[in-house]
């Protein structure tokens, strides 16, 4: 275990140094950046992308990809909002929303495994389907008039011990998922399938089943992100989560996880999500136009990947 962890730390070392550099530069350029308020703000903004990216890490570790996460976020968010608006018990509505997300993910997994469709194609299709269903369900308009229950408000807007609740959710998910990936047979199977699926099957691993679970997990995490977003905005937007899959994939790649599967870890993904979040926030503070922000973000991703290539070459 020790050797391997060391290797993983090295893999992410570049990203961590990068994150530190960005933080140092931004804190010099902007007085507000390192204030406690702003740090918590950044973390809250990061939490949504991070939750999706955690799921994406599992998917990519198996050698797959999930482009439908943004649409799952929107549909699950809209469904939850709809249930709340019709007066359903908030706890129940949130639970059903999470299950709906998991089912959407399971649908992805079934098409990929039983239908033998490449993950890119399968989730490209379901991305469009789920987005379409969101538009049908919401009639293209935001869902408003949600419950003012303490529980639901808490999810997106609340604080616990001074920490935004979404950040706590992100932290809890992180700890649970790291445990699953590192300490359980399920995690071991995820890595093995990404490393060599044929060998895994011949070793008695039901790779189809593992993959369906992985896509379901990603669906549920995307739904959780959608519910947080809905709570924060106090409404569900039909175009919510648009292109979120790209930020999630970027976070995973920045974290050193190999797109061909079998190699990577969640700490890296968290660092990757933080880099993206800190950049967004810092560039906003510096009043950089949102057009330029995209250029900078893309440039950082490219730089990180190029440095990674150099290191492994």
């Amino acid at each position: 275990m020790k050797h391997k962890s060391l290797g993983e730390w090295m893999q992410t070392l570049g990203s961590m140094i990068g994150l530190l550099l960005i933080i140092i530069i931004l804190s010099v350029m902007s007085d507000n950046f390192l204030s406690l308020g702003n740090i918590l703000n950044v973390l809250r903004q990061v939490s949504i992308n991070a939750l999706i990216a955690f799921g994406m890490t599992f998917v990519i570790l198996t050698g797959g990809i999930d482009l439908s996460v943004g649409s799952v976020l929107a549909l699950a968010g809209a469904l939850t909002a709809g249930m709340l608006a019709s007066g359903m018990d908030p706890v129940l509505a949130v639970l059903i929303g999470l299950i709906a997300g998991a089912l959407m993910g399971a649908f992805n997994g079934l098409i990929i495994t039983k239908g033998k469709v490449a993950p890119f194609i399968a989730t490209l299709a379901t991305m469009t389907i789920f987005r379409g269903l969101t538009l049908v369900y919401t009639d293209g308009r935001p869902v408003t008039g949600l419950s003012d229950s303490f529980f639901f408000e808490m999810i997106g807007k609340g604080y616990l011990f001074g920490i935004p609740f979404p950040v706590i959710l992100m932290g809890a998910a992180f700890i649970i998922l790291v445990f699953i990936l590192r300490k359980t047979t399920f995690g071991r199977k995820v890595y093995a399938i990404g490393g060599n699926e044929s060998a895994s099957i011949l070793s008695g691993i039901k790779s189809d089943r593992v993959k369906i679970w992985v896509y379901s997990l990603t669906g549920m995490l995307s739904a959780l992100a959608g519910i947080i977003l809905t709570s924060r905005l106090n409404s569900a937007q039909p175009n919510a989560g648009f292109t979120y899959e790209l930020d999630a994939i970027a976070a995973v790649v920045l974290g050193g996880t190999s797109l061909s599967g079998g190699r990577g870890w969640l700490v890296g993904t968290l660092v990757g999500a933080l880099i993206i979040g800190v950049l967004n926030n810092g560039l906003n503070l510096l009043n950089v136009s949102s057009f330029y922000q995209q250029v900078v973000k893309g440039g950082v991703i490219l730089l990180a990947v190029l440095l990674d290539r150099k290191k492994s070459a």
């Binding site: 890595y191 093995a192 060599n196 060998a199 011949l202 079998g262």
Partner: peptide
């Protein structure tokens, strides 16, 4: 190599 081992693992 193709079906027996996960080569990048320990």
């Amino acid at each position: 190599k193709g079906k027996g081992l996960v080569l990048n693992q320990t």
